[in-house]
């Protein structure tokens, strides 16, 4: 895949239009890497001049911050900001709502001021500007969308992902708890990295129940962590043969045969 780095761009004296912040999950997690690649394909299709930091990228510190480790967070943030500012980055896009949130809301005070987009917002913009068209159709399949907390409630973005899903020619069915009332998948607040406290159910099982009640063919997500949680939930309910969990970027890449 042709994925230029900021260092390579700089060596050629070029400044890309946008920096793609891949994020730790998107870089290392096998499932999330597929989302990363799908998004890159879309960027290529729309001829977006982009670059990544590559090995110069480091954890945003988001997970550390939600644990309560403000030291580690700010160390990560300031290190990243030094690099981002050195490359004079103005615009960032990421597939991870957690990176999106912290880059957009928590970095500015520490000296990192950028225009930050979630990939669903960015893709929608490409379409609105006529740089990308979605022609493929998915035969009116039933799709439900799980709102990521850090895109939805945390940043009030509910419409971009839905606008994209609707363009795919699917039957978008909402869960009973949706948008600002959506239930968390259970990964947030660094829960992803630990065992849950004792209770009578895991959160992702409950959230997947919400999704299954809509009888979907596909559960669409916009977050690598939600994706993992919902995938595990579907397996728990033994529905992995019938139901797929896919990021919106993957749905678009597939519909367009990218």
């Amino acid at each position: 895949m042709n994925v230029p780095t900021m260092a390579e761009m700089m060596a050629q004296g070029k400044q890309p239009e946008v920096l793609f912040w891949v994020g730790s999950a998107g870089s290392y997690d096998d499932r999330a890497k597929k989302i990363t690649k799908a998004f890159v394909k879309i960027l290529h299709k729309a001829n977006v001049d982009f670059a990544v930091l590559g090995t110069e990228e480091s954890s945003t510190g988001d997970a550390a911050k939600r644990v309560g480790n403000e030291f580690l967070f700010q160390m990560q943030a300031m290190t990243n900001i030094e690099i981002l500012n050195a490359y004079e980055v103005k615009k960032i896009v990421t597939c991870d709502p957690h990176s999106f949130n912290t880059l957009k809301n928590e970095y500015p005070e520490l000296g990192g001021k950028y225009e930050v987009y979630h990939h669903t917002q960015f893709i929608k913009q490409l379409i609105d500007e006529g740089r990308l068209s979605i022609n493929g159709t998915m035969n009116n399949e039933r799709v439900t969308f799980h709102d990521p907390c850090y895109l939805g409630r945390a940043n009030d973005e509910y419409e971009s992902p839905r606008a994209l899903i609707k363009r795919l020619g699917v039957n978008l069915v909402e869960m009973k708890r949706n948008k600002n009332r959506a239930l968390c998948c259970g990964a947030g607040g660094a829960q992803m990295f630990k065992e849950p406290e004792k209770g009578d159910m895991d959160i992702n099982i409950l959230r997947t129940k919400d999704a299954l009640a809509t009888q979907p063919k596909i559960i669409a997500t916009g977050c690598p962590y939600c994706n993992t949680m919902m995938t595990d939930g579907v397996k728990f309910h033994e529905k992995e043969e019938e139901i797929q969990v896919k990021d919106i970027a993957e749905l678009i890449a597939e519909a367009e045969n990218l």
């Binding site: 870089s27 290392y28 990544v52 990228e57 510190g61 580690l72 630990k194």
Partner: peptide, 27 residues
């Protein structure tokens, strides 16, 4: 488990134990 995650962030800039040099391997 969270301490381990934070140690990873501190040492290799990711929540898991992967080398920072492998960050772009996905491409």
């Amino acid at each position: 488990e969270l301490n381990m995650m934070m140690t990873n962030v501190e040492n290799n800039g990711a929540m898991w134990q992967y080398s920072p040099m492998d960050r772009l391997n996905w491409k």
